[in-house]
């Protein structure tokens, strides 16, 4: 079992003919993910990966021809918001956006629109997700994780890889590993994933990787205390980071001085979460 992606995932790759799109499509296919089609406007009718995957001019055409239930976006930041709107309007219920550097106001409009349509977004600025042994949707290296009973959710890309890798070294595996991305406004958040892991019968324990800034970890801690029965282990990156550059008065008013690693660790420990000093300690805390 798993959350969000599995062997029934039928994936559309937006930006499939670009450098990153093509490279990671090949990696996803090699992992066993069902990549059914791709989109690059102007390249409809072409085929990629030795003629295995058809390319379409639009999401709508790809969806009609190939039956898609998940889209992944490898499109540069200035075109990525439009790619998300296009996938949502084509009726795709789950969209993963890898792109980093999307303007935050664009993301606020995207998120508002998707919420109204009931479309789930993961990212942007995220590594995607991996259900070991079933499907890889994104850029998490497939060989660093094995199937198991740990659910992983993380705000940081490469730090997630560290944790999966550390788990694998001691023979522990994951149900699904989700990288939610570090942007201030994104789609799926910690609580969404914690809830799905709590409901997934095969997930027995959960690892949550946070970092400084914002209050998502604090709110996740509240959720864990009230609604989770499964044990959660955490790590917060940035424990030694110098105080960040301040966001003027309004930032201080909104965030009320919260968002430090210390606050987050305190909130999580108060919710019964074991917090690791560094990511390689996580496997021990899960035992």
């Amino acid at each position: 079992m798993s959350i969000l992606v599995n062997k029934n995932t039928r994936l559309l790759v937006q930006g499939i003919t670009g450098n990153e799109g093509l490279f990671h499509t090949a990696q996803m296919v090699a992992y066993g993910t069902k990549v059914v089609s791709g989109v690059t406007p102007g390249k409809g009718g072409e085929w990629v990966l030795d003629g295995k995957i058809p390319v379409f001019d639009s999401c709508r055409a790809a969806v009609e021809a190939t039956g898609v239930n998940t889209a992944i976006i490898f499109v540069s930041a200035r075109f990525a918001p439009d790619a998300i709107f296009e996938a949502a309007d084509a009726g795709i219920p789950f969209i993963v956006c890898i792109t980093e550097g999307i303007p935050v106001q664009d993301m606020m409009r995207v998120r508002e629109y998707l919420d109204q349509k009931g479309v789930r977004l993961l990212g942007p600025n995220c590594p995607g997700l991996l259900t070991p042994g079933e499907a890889k949707v994104g850029i998490i290296p497939g060989d660093i994780a094995i199937p198991g009973n740990v659910g992983c959710v993380s705000r940081s890309g490469t730090l997630t890889y560290e944790v999966l890798y550390a788990l694998k070294q001691v023979g522990m595996g994951a149900t699904t590993c989700v990288g939610i991305g570090g942007d201030p406004v994104n789609g799926t958040n910690f609580i969404d994933c914690l809830r799905m892991f709590e409901d997934d019968p095969h997930t027995e324990k959960v690892v949550m990787i946070g970092e400084i800034g914002g209050t998502d970890e604090e709110r996740a801690a509240e959720f864990i205390a009230k609604q989770m029965t499964k044990p959660v282990v955490s790590f917060i990156a940035g424990q030694t980071a110098p105080p960040g550059k301040r966001m003027g008065h309004a930032g201080a008013i909104i965030e009320g001085g919260s968002g430090t690693a210390e606050d987050k660790v305190k909130a999580l420990e108060a919710a019964g979460v074991k917090v690791a000093k560094h990511p390689e300690q996580i496997p021990d805390l899960l035992k």
């Binding site: 940081s156 730090l159 560290e162 570090g182 400084i212 990156a237 940035g238 980071a241």
Partner: peptide
């Protein structure tokens, strides 16, 4: 020199944990 902000911060955290001082993020 690290790839990814989270891992870069973590690398600094671990350098400090083992008694060193990072020169940069």
């Amino acid at each position: 020199m690290v790839n990814g902000a989270g891992l870069a911060m973590t690398t600094m955290d671990i350098v400090k944990l083992f008694g060193g001082e990072p020169a940069n993020f």
